[in-house]
């Protein structure tokens, strides 16, 4: 049997495969291992202080921002089953984990309680100029050494505030912090990196929203690596009991 055709076909296959690989470079090769399941440290009082979320800052509202913050301390809050905005998505709570998944064009974040995955592209693209508003906006990233820098615009401004969904007035006697909303003018910049020998993820979030605040501010939120957990299914509309749950005033 002549082995030449087989050899030729093998070489052709290898050539085609390497061409395909070259056409689809692995954006994740050599990048920090941020993949997997993470849980916010916010609910653990005993967490190492180095990985504790920074307190909510004292902010200066615009007139619109002050009114919106006040509105969110009444039952006129966003519907609790609506998606999160990118700021609240990354607020570091401990009740639900999120998962960072490798995608062809960047990464996908799956945060259990939010019905919409968050996509961060880092294939070199820019924000489109004619962006339509969405709950999570449009996020593009780039690796700055070991840090993923993410730029987000294009939010619809309809989500819950940075510091919680529920209004202070109806939620707790002790939580009187002003709600920190964001608008459709949000420009959010994040610096995401591994800390604590790779066991924690830090997200330094700068909120620049001239419709809501007179100046930008920065908070840091932390997650702990939790390979023992899984992100589970969460379909919020399944078994809602708004009367019993006491939030009949919330609006979509």
């Amino acid at each position: 049997m002549n082995s030449r055709p087989v050899l030729a076909s093998l070489i052709a296959t290898l050539a085609a495969t390497s061409f395909l690989l070259a056409a689809e470079p692995d954006l994740h090769r050599g990048k920090p291992d941020i993949w997997g399941v993470w849980l916010g440290t916010g609910g653990y009082p005993d967490i190492d202080p180095r990985y504790r979320n920074t307190p909510w800052p004292t902010v200066e509202f615009t007139a619109w921002g002050a009114a919106e913050s006040k509105r969110l301390t009444t039952p006129e809050t966003p519907d609790e089953c609506m998606p999160y905005g990118p700021h609240a998505y990354m607020a570091g709570g401990s009740l639900f984990p999120f998962e960072i998944v490798k995608a062809a064009k960047g990464l996908v974040l799956l945060y259990e309680p939010s019905p919409v995955p968050r996509r961060i592209y880092y294939d070199g693209r820019k924000h489109p100029e004619d962006l339509d508003p969405t709950w999570l906006g449009h996020s593009v990233g780039r690796w700055d050494g070991e840090t993923l820098v993410v730029d987000t615009v294009g939010t619809n401004g309809r989500g819950r505030p940075l510091n919680g969904y529920v209004a202070a007035a109806v939620n707790s006697k002790t939580d009187n912090a002003p709600r920190l909303p964001v608008s459709d003018r949000l420009h959010m910049v994040e610096r995401i990196r591994l800390v604590g020998r790779g066991e924690y993820l830090e997200d330094e979030i700068t909120i620049d929203d001239p419709k809501t605040y007179t100046r930008s501010f920065t908070v840091k939120h932390y997650w702990q690596r939790r390979p023992d957990l899984e992100v589970l299914e969460y379909f919020c509309d399944d078994n809602r009991r708004p009367e019993a749950e006491g939030h009949t005033g919330s609006k979509p």
């Binding site: 607020a91 209004a167 109806v170 006491g246």
Partner: peptide, 21 residues
């Protein structure tokens, strides 16, 4: 018990208010 306190204290991530209880 800690978890319960946090739910009662109005966490940033609770689905909704527990003020009616």
């Amino acid at each position: 018990a800690v978890a319960v306190m946090m739910l009662g204290a109005g966490s940033a991530w609770a689905h909704h208010s527990f003020a009616m209880f």
